[in-house]
């Protein structure tokens, strides 16, 4: 069944994330990061940073940090067991650190299909705010297999 294109423009329920040094320490360990500004608060402060620096792809983890990260696909009636991550991109405007509170404000910007509907694509774009300052944005393309 094809996803109804009426969902283009749909707002994703917004959410807020408090970024912690603890979480970043585990992420750094997972990806083999060795620069201590990414996991050690003291090293980050010595480097003149206000907190542990969140690495470039961590915005995606924070975007997923909600009870139902794919709530928008469920709203469209998609089977999450048939979902693949097709593309992911980021624009960066300001760095973000442990101690920051970030707000995620997303919208569905496109829905299309290929191979006569065997593959459907849902595009979500999210703006990330620290109070009134735009720190970055994300664009995620999820693929739903028939």
């Amino acid at each position: 069944m094809l996803i109804d294109k009426k969902h283009i423009g749909m707002k994703v329920p917004p959410h807020r994330v408090n970024l912690t040094a603890w979480q970043l320490k585990w992420f750094a360990k997972a990806i083999g990061e060795t620069d201590p500004i990414y996991f050690d608060e003291e090293a980050a402060h010595k480097a003149g940073l206000p907190g542990v620096l969140a690495p470039p792809t961590f915005l995606f983890c924070m975007d997923m940090d909600k009870e139902h990260p794919f709530d928008y696909l469920e709203t469209m009636g998609c089977d999450l067991g048939k979902m693949l991550h097709g593309e992911q991109s980021f624009n960066y405007y300001q760095p973000f650190y442990s101690g920051d509170t970030l707000d995620f404000d997303g919208q569905i910007t496109d829905i299309y299909d290929k191979k006569n509907g065997a593959l459907q694509f849902v595009v979500k774009e999210v703006k990330v705010w620290r109070q009134s300052e735009l720190v970055g944005d994300l664009r995620s393309v999820m693929v739903i297999r028939a």
Partner: peptide, 27 residues
């Protein structure tokens, strides 16, 4: 996203992270 994080490390080993303006990947 693990692979994308590794590519992120490739970038931040080359330039300070603040220099990255955009970064996108196709899986």
């Amino acid at each position: 996203m693990l692979g994308m994080a590794y590519l992120g490390r490739l970038l931040t080993q080359w330039v300070p992270q603040g220099a990255i303006r955009s970064f996108g990947v196709r899986f």
